[in-house]
Simulated scan of single mutants.
Amino acid sequence: MHDPLRLTAIQLAPGADKAANIAQARGLIEAAVPQDRPQLIALPEIWTCLGGDRATKFAAAETLPEPGGTGGAAYEFLREMARTHQIHVHGGSIGESGGDKLFNTTLVFDPTGTEIARYRKIHLFDIVTPDGQGYRESAIYGAGDQLVTFKLGAATIGLTICYDMRFPELYLALRRAGADIILVPAAFTLQTGKDHWEVLLRARAIETQCWIAAPACTGTHFDGSNEPRVTYGNSLIADPWGIVTARCSDGPGFVTARIDLAKSAKHRADMPVLEHRKLV
């Protein structure tokens, strides 16, 4: 039997100032480590530059290095946090330079500061919210096309980002790839979040029988036309039965849960839904 994994979800209130966002993330990580002693820390979606115009987003994006190479400010910050605190760091997602478009990209580092996983968001957020605000992520970002997992001890951890959560086939594919935990960094809008955030995350946990950890952005930022955009926050961790075991309150902060893989194993043995599946 394996000891539970301590996982901390960091909730940030980022804007378009990359240096200020990194400083905010540093402060929260350095508070969480001695208090909760996590083995894995996870950050939200696109936390290095939330808001601003196209030029701002491109300026904040980073060209990611080849293995062993030196990266930009956010890349090296994430690597530093992993190495300094001897933990795994899941970097939420940052803007990755990719030519005419960026990629919304997750990076994961092990306790030596070595990058062990890289995932590009597959599903892009091109929608109109109930209050009439339009979002067109594909105008700036390209889509990824690869399923990505990584190992942390006995756990296999799957990577997704925000809008991906509306596509259960991705989560089923991760479960089939051996995932025990699925991470969902997000900058979920207030309008959709208040109705769908928890429902979708709990559903993904129930149907995959995986732990779901969703670190989120919170607060108000401003887009390129200076229009305010509000993110929902409510970072949470749900167990394989769909019960929320940890949740952030409003504002920047962090929340930690003990991830017990034995709970997943029991639910999967008692209710083997993957083996019962007929159509997919």
Rank of each mutant, 00 (worst) to 15 (best):
G158H: 04
R229H: 09
G193V: 01
P130C: 07
E137D: 09
D195G: 10
S225Y: 13
I157W: 07
G178M: 04
L172H: 06
L159G: 03
P240W: 01
A177Y: 12
Q133W: 05
A179W: 00
R136G: 06
K151S: 15
D223V: 11
T231H: 07
L201G: 02
N226S: 14
G178K: 01
A213D: 08
A177T: 13
H196D: 14
A203W: 05
F188R: 00
F150M: 10
A173T: 12
A203M: 12
L147D: 12
P215Y: 01
L170N: 11
G144S: 09
F125V: 06
V128N: 05
F222W: 06
L172T: 09
L147P: 10
G224H: 07
Y141R: 00
L152P: 07
R229N: 09
T231Q: 08
A203E: 12
D145H: 10
V199L: 11
E227H: 11
A186R: 00
L174I: 10
T189N: 06
F222G: 01
A187P: 07
L170M: 15
A173F: 09
I127D: 06
F222Y: 11
D180H: 08
I161H: 03
T208P: 04
Y171W: 12
G233N: 00
H221C: 15
G132K: 02
I122K: 04
